[in-house]
Amino acid sequence: MTVLAEQSTMTLPSFMKHLAVLERGGLIRTAKTGRVRRCELNRERLDLLDDWLAEQRRTWEQRTDRLDAFVTTQPGITQKETS
């Protein structure tokens, strides 16, 4: 934890407060071994923060796949084209 704090411009107490908030929100986990407290990122929960756009992209990609499949496999729709 002190290693992380050293790289930040915040003071150690302020840094600890921020980490506590992140821990309460489930974004990190901390565990104390002797005098050393280690932080671990909770990747799954972090991903929720920016994954909404990826989720929308998947929806639209798959929708485009289905449109593509629909127009290229429906003979009726291309026949109409020539009529």
């Binding site: 992140l22 932080c39 990122l41 923060l49 920016d50």
Partner: peptide
């Protein structure tokens, strides 16, 4: 995000 970048830049530890 900043914390993640910081933490992933090196091993998070003591």
């Amino acid at each position: 995000a900043q914390l993640a970048a910081l933490a992933e830049g090196r091993n998070v530890g003591a």
